[in-house]
Computed example of a mutant assay.
Amino acid sequence: MEFRRLGRSGLKVSAISYGNWLTHGSQVEEDAAHACVKAALDAGITTFDTADVYANTKAEAVLGRALKGQRRESLEIFTKVYWPTGPGGPNDRGLGRKHIMESATASLKRLGTDYLDLYQAHRYDRKVPLEETMLAFSDLVRQGKVLYVGVSEWNAEQITQGAALARELRVPLISNQPQYSMLWRVIEEQVVPAAEHEGISQIVWSPIAQGVLTGKYQPGAQPPAGSRATDESGGKNMISRWLADDVLTAVRSLKPLADEAGLSMAQLAVAWVLQNPNVASAIIGASRPEQVAENVKAAGVTLDADLLAKIDAVLDGVIERDPALTVTP
């Protein structure tokens, strides 16, 4: 496993991290979730990412039980706050002080730990003063409940404003967690330069575009039974944007390039995002342990410039680059 420094901080994370969105507490049974976490640990993954909203808090609880008995100092445990949890009361969402402080306490309990290595604002909250949000994060840091702070899907302007306030409050703001893949490159034009300037790294999600970049979805064919594209509980909606025939046809043309590099298509996709020097870690999910074992082989792989150019040529016309598509509720 390769390890990379997160932002300008002293924290090192595994280049491939394990995330349990859309899996733990919902898509897979708990024993399967535990098996996937064990496979991640066996593969050298030390960084685990979750969020309180995943399966309405169940995913955190499953991850906490799966990691029970592991040496806490050898792990980096990340979670997030913003989206509604619990019964959905007026203060059960957002980045107001009350929700942040209560959510952090609840996440710690579910994860079975005294502190979080990284606590992330899951989205930017336009309805709460940024000063209130950052002050709550700074208090959690000073209380020892949180070591570092991050954000998720913030645009360049929001990252710049947050970083300025973080410096003023002496908050260690070190990361952003955006969607990023060969197909979805909206962070490259604005977010990455802003983050680099502020000493912030990317921890990217969906590096294989919800499974589309594995090549298992074929143009003109029905999605495989049991795949994410058939999951009515949430996966189907997320993957639908990639199931157009022109996208799937272009993705199919990546297979010879993956073969040339001696990689599976999934490994090629994960290795591709890790070529970006501002990416500290790529989050993979899994419903089976063998998926973890396969994808982790992308760590430490270098793709040469010629191969990267061929990938761009194959996908030309289906790549999304518009920076305005960064998620900002």
Rank of each mutant, 00 (worst) to 15 (best):
L116F: 10
R126L: 01
E30G: 03
I77N: 04
A163V: 00
R241D: 03
R123I: 11
R126Q: 01
D117L: 00
Q70L: 02
A225H: 01
M182D: 02
G215H: 12
A66Q: 09
F78P: 01
W272D: 06
A104E: 03
E260C: 01
D42C: 12
W83V: 01
P87V: 11
Q158L: 04
I100T: 11
E198G: 06
I284L: 15
L213V: 08
V171I: 10
I45Y: 06
E320L: 11
H122V: 06
H34M: 04
S287F: 13
R71D: 15
G262Y: 02
D92Y: 12
S233N: 14
L257G: 12
F78L: 15
A261M: 08
A39V: 01
A164D: 13
T23E: 09
A269S: 14
G44S: 08
L11R: 03
G162I: 05
R185E: 03
K216R: 14
R185Y: 02
L135D: 14
P224H: 09
G215K: 10
Q70W: 01
T302H: 13
E2D: 13
Q275G: 12
K310Q: 14
Q190I: 00
G25N: 07
E102Q: 14
I200G: 09
L63A: 10
Q190L: 08
T230A: 02
N20I: 07
D117I: 00
M238G: 14
V13T: 05
T214M: 07
A229P: 08
E157C: 00
G226L: 10
T50R: 00
H99K: 09
G44I: 09
E260Y: 03
P223E: 14
A33D: 11
R72K: 11
D306S: 15
K12I: 00
L22K: 10
Q179P: 05
E260M: 05
E157T: 09
A298I: 08
G262I: 02
R126A: 11
I311A: 00
G88R: 09
M101C: 04
G162A: 04
L108I: 03
L67M: 13
S264H: 07
P90G: 09
S201P: 10
A299D: 13
G112W: 03
L118G: 05
T47K: 09
S107V: 13
V37I: 06
L263Q: 02
I77F: 02
R8W: 01
E2G: 00
Q158V: 01
N56P: 03
E232G: 08
L274H: 12
A66T: 13
T160D: 14
V251K: 02
E290G: 02
Y124P: 01
A269R: 01
I187W: 02
L11G: 06
G199V: 08
L6W: 03
D312A: 07
S26H: 10
S152D: 12
D304E: 00
D31M: 07
A293R: 14
L63Y: 07
A221K: 15
T113C: 06
G19Y: 03
S287G: 15
I203T: 15
R93A: 11
T133C: 11
E132Y: 11
V37H: 00
L118R: 02
R4V: 10
P329G: 05
K109S: 15
G285C: 04
R93M: 12
